Simulated scan of single mutants.
Amino acid sequence: MTDIARLVHNVDQQGFAELDKIGLNGQRDQGLVCTLISRDLSGSDDLCVSWGRILPGQHHLCHHHPDASEFYVVISGTPLVHLGDTEYRARPGDGIYIPRGTRHGLTNDGDTAVDLVVGVSKPADWQFVPDE
């Protein structure tokens, strides 16, 4: 029998948590995350998927993952995406692939929240290496 309670999770029921990473100069990572698929939550052995929210004025620290690739799908807002040595103005509907080891981060310099789906190619325990 399929365990729907383990396989299906809703952002409104799970709720958001504040990002908890620290940058190279002691600055706090900013934004909210709600994990929807992971090893612990869903039994996934190959990916982690979350709903991210970056509020106006917040900055998700530039960092990289030496052991995992990542993607963003922008649902709402127009964040400034820091990707390698480039900055890109994203818009709703953009899918952004971040290869393993690539420096990346987000800045919400707009007036509305940025919502995005975030996926990582490991179910848990990937490394977050701050680059700022």
Rank of each mutant, 00 (worst) to 15 (best):
P92H: 02
F16Q: 03
G15Q: 06
L32D: 05
V73S: 12
V117G: 08
V33G: 11
L83H: 04
L47S: 02
V114N: 09
V8Q: 03
L41R: 06
Y72F: 15
V114Q: 00
G93P: 03
R100W: 07
N10Y: 14
T107R: 12
L19A: 11
A17Q: 14
N108Y: 00
K122C: 07
I37K: 04
S76R: 07
T78I: 05
L61W: 04
H104T: 11
V117E: 02
V117P: 06
V74Q: 06
Q14I: 01
G23T: 11
I37A: 08
D109A: 14
W51A: 11
G52D: 03
L24I: 02
R6Y: 01
H65C: 07
D40F: 04
R89V: 15
A17G: 08
Q30Y: 02
H104A: 03
G119D: 03
L116Q: 02
V73Y: 15
G119P: 05
W126V: 02
D109M: 06
D46M: 12
V8P: 00
L7D: 12
Q30R: 08
A90T: 07
G31F: 10
T107Y: 04
I37G: 00
V117T: 08
D20G: 15
V118S: 11
H9S: 07
V8L: 14
L19F: 15
N10L: 11
D12V: 10
V73F: 15
R100Q: 13
H104C: 01
T35A: 14
S69T: 05
L32G: 03
G119C: 04
Q27S: 02
V114H: 00
G77Q: 04
L106H: 08
D94Q: 05
P79L: 03
Q127D: 13
V114G: 09
E132Y: 09
I37S: 00
Y97D: 11
G119H: 00
W51R: 13
I75K: 01
T86Q: 15
G31Y: 12
A5V: 10
W126R: 12
D46I: 09
V73L: 14
D109R: 13
I37W: 04
T2A: 13
D40V: 08
I4N: 10
L32Y: 13
S76G: 10
A5R: 09
L36D: 04
V129S: 07
V11Q: 08
D94S: 11
V118Y: 12
L55E: 13
S121K: 12
N25I: 10
I54E: 09
